[in-house]
Every structure is written in C-alpha cells, then in structure tokens.
Amino acid sequence: MHIQDGFLNNNLAGSMFAGAVCMFGYCFGKMLKTVSVVSENLVTNHGNTPIKQNIVFLSKKSKQNFQELALIATWIFAFQMFNVPIQSATSAHIIGGVFAAILAGPFAGFIIMSSVLIVQALFFSDGGLLALGANIFNMALVGSFISYYIYKNIKKTNYVLAVFTACFFSVMGASLSCLAELAFSNTIIFSKAFKDMTTMHLIVSLLESIITLILIKLFKNLNGDINE
C-alpha cells in the first residue's frame, strides 16, 4: 500500500504533501485541546484595570495520553511489519487505522498513522518521501480519520458490524484512492487495474477486521481506562 517515489506525478505528490502538512497541523491542534487545560489569570496593566489572560498548559493526564498514543503507534508499526501471504506471490499487511482511531479518537488516530508513516518513509524506505503526502492521505485520512466516522455511525446499531464496515471502507477506500492517484499520474489505467486491486484488498479487509476486533478487545482488557 505504501507508494514509492516515482509512481506519482510530482505536482500531485507535492500538493498532497502540502495538504497532509495542513491536516497534520489541524489534527495536532485538536488533539492538544483534549489534553490541555486553560486557566484565566489576571495580569496587571500599569495601574489600570487588570486584564484577563488565558494561560494554556497540559493537563496532568497528558503524560498518560501521550504514552497511550506511543503504544498504539508501536502496535501499528509492529503489525505493518508483518506481511501475510495472500496469494501465490503476493503478501499484505494490515493498515491499523481503524484500531488507532477507535482507541484514540479520529484526530489522534490521524497523528498516530502519520507518525508511523513518517518513520517508515524516513528510516525504512517503506514509501517515498515525496509520496508521503499521498500515503498519509490514503492510510491516515481515508484509512483512519474518515473510517472512524463510519464506525461511529454504525456503532449505535451493532459494534461488530461497525468495526467490520469501518475496516472494509478503510482498506478498500485507501486502496482505491491509491489507485486513483496512480491513474491520475498516468502510471496505471484505473479500469484495467481495478479488479486486481479490489480482489486482493478484499482479503486484506477481512484480515484487518478480524485483527482490529481482537486488538481492540486485547488493548482495552490490558489498559482498561483508555478513553475514546
């Protein structure tokens, strides 16, 4: 699923990189809001009436929150390293975006997925540096952030169905957006590769659903007080 440099048109890769940076900043700000405390202080104003000033600082729970994010990220990194053979000469790994978003929320989920992708691209050549924006779009935005809202809407009806649908959308959505980017860059013809891409990722989506269900159960059992 990780797009390498050279597959994408430079204009597309560059603009997606810029978009990913903006989205990262937005999600990081949103995530910080959940771990920050705002206190109102009165500041002296040279003998005039004191002015109210808001001081933002991290809450006491923030240390634990960041530790949980780090743990979820390490789990995802480890699982993405594990390639399972799905066909005679093809292997695949899970994305883990739904797992991250369900446990940490959509904004923190995006940050977790992006940080894993950044480390993979910088240190392991897994995905290109210029294609990092496209990879973040596919796996962090489509595979985690948007999929979370699918899970959230169906969760009220049935939890297992919600996880399965979110995982299905996560994998299929990410693979189709990857295919669309390649087609837009004139690397591949969308209609020709559609069948191959979807059939192989159907197996991955089933694998992703089962592993996500097990992982969430395991993580919640081990770390009972985690908040969504």
């Binding site: 797009i3 390639n83 000469a89 093809t90 292997s91 693979s175 590769a193 191959d196 192989m200 991955v204």
Partner: peptide
C-alpha cells in the same frame, strides 16, 4: 513474515 512483494508491488 512473507518476503513476497505486497499488493502494490505486485501491481
């Protein structure tokens, strides 16, 4: 872990 190419590499 399988050393086979992943889906995108196969494509």
């Amino acid at each position: 872990a399988s050393k086979q190419p992943d889906v995108l590499e196969t494509l």
